[in-house]
């Protein structure tokens, strides 16, 4: 039986915002900490580290995930998009840019700590279901904690981008 020795560090290679990244990573480090501490991509925020607050949400292989609930070594071979690259990225950069503009115009952020993840979460909905109702928007955003706004301006901003993209 050919058994590899269990690793405490591993070499990984993946793309982040279109750039190739190759690093040796401690296996216990989660993806959020790796992006922040090793790559200096501090737009991904850490709010709870148990998957509830949503502040570390980013896009992995085209879908949003919690970066605190994924090991950095699990990103091996993946295509990661963080807020720093989301507005210019291949997937739906224009959606993120639209959302950023609407968030700004409507003051849909205060302290800004939830904002990058809120934008990426909203972008997934806008891309998949631009016809979403206000209630569906609220449901989709319900895994992202914002302590500052009343959520309303965020919902307004997302709704506005949805409407402009669904042509309704």
């Amino acid at each position: 039986m050919n058994t590899p020795k269990p690793a405490t560090e591993l070499d990984v290679a993946f793309t982040v915002n279109g750039e190739r990244v190759e690093r040796r990573v401690p296996v216990r480090q989660n993806l959020a900490d790796f992006l922040r501490d090793t790559l200096g991509l501090t737009g991904t925020h850490v709010g709870c580290e148990h998957g509830v607050c949503g502040a570390c949400t980013l896009r992995c292989n085209g879908v949003i995930v919690r970066a605190c609930l994924m090991l950095a070594v699990q990103a091996d071979g993946a295509d990661i998009v963080t807020i720093e690259g989301a507005a210019t990225g291949n997937y739906d950069g224009a959606i993120v840019a639209d959302l950023q503009r609407e968030f700004h115009q409507r003051n849909a952020l205060q302290c800004g700590f939830c904002t990058p993840a809120m934008l990426l979460t909203a972008a997934e909905l806008v891309a998949a279901r631009p016809q979403a109702s206000r209630e569906e928007i609220r449901a989709h955003l319900s895994g992202n904690y914002c302590r500052c706004t009343g959520y309303q301006s965020i919902v307004d901003a997302v709704e506005s981008v949805c409407r402009s993209r669904s042509g309704t």
Partner: peptide
């Protein structure tokens, strides 16, 4: 008026202490 200092927060370029 939209807040001038919100733009960097929207771009992930805010700077909190842990950054």
């Amino acid at each position: 008026l939209p807040r001038t200092n919100a733009l960097r927060l929207l771009s992930g370029r805010g700077q909190y202490v842990d950054d």
